[in-house]
């Protein structure tokens, strides 16, 4: 029963603005295996073990096997700057340039508001089993 695997989530917080805003109602596909293969740029529901049950909404920026560098407000993957049209505006520079070499089931998940987001930069890369599902659509409001 596919509908039983779909889950509605109300967004709390502003770290995914402007794409997803506080109060939005999202439809998340939580079917087993829906997260694999995950697309770069997808917004996912992630339950990091460090936060014991809290579900975060973040964007997939780094894929397994990628070498990701966050530097000067930009993300570089395998030496190439990533085009991120979903970001609101120029992002403030990272205080520290950091690199992650992602393992076979590791994803780097970041918020769209880089200056104010709790994500893989502090929690570490996400492992596939901790990714609960992929955001499929916005149920409400309809006009954004």
């Amino acid at each position: 029963m596919m509908w039983r695997r779909l889950r509605a989530l109300v967004v709390r917080g502003h770290s995914m603005a402007p794409t997803v805003r506080a109060g939005d109602l999202l439809l998340v596909d939580t079917r087993p295996g829906c997260a694999a293969p995950l697309g770069r740029g997808a917004i996912v529901a992630w339950a990091p073990t460090a936060l014991s049950g809290t579900v975060l909404l973040k964007r997939v920026v780094g894929m397994p096997g990628d070498e990701v560098l966050c530097r000067g407000g930009s993300v570089w993957i395998d030496g190439r700057a990533v085009d991120e049209p979903y970001l609101m505006s120029a992002q403030p520079a990272e205080a520290v340039a950091r690199t992650w070499a992602l393992g076979p089931d590791e994803y780097l998940l970041l918020g769209d508001r880089r200056a104010d987001s709790l994500d893989s930069r502090r929690l570490g890369p996400a492992h596939l089993p901790d990714i609960l599902g992929v955001v499929q659509s916005r149920l409400w409001p309809l006009w954004r």
């Binding site: 109300v10 917080g13 997803v20 109060g23 109602l25 909404l57 508001r113 409001p141």
Partner: peptide
């Protein structure tokens, strides 16, 4: 309307957590 829909669908909470 959003709140009513969320209640009807028994929506959970997805945290778009900010840092501070």
């Amino acid at each position: 309307i959003g709140r009513g829909l969320a209640a009807a669908l028994r929506a959970g909470v997805g945290e778009a957590h900010c840092d501070i």
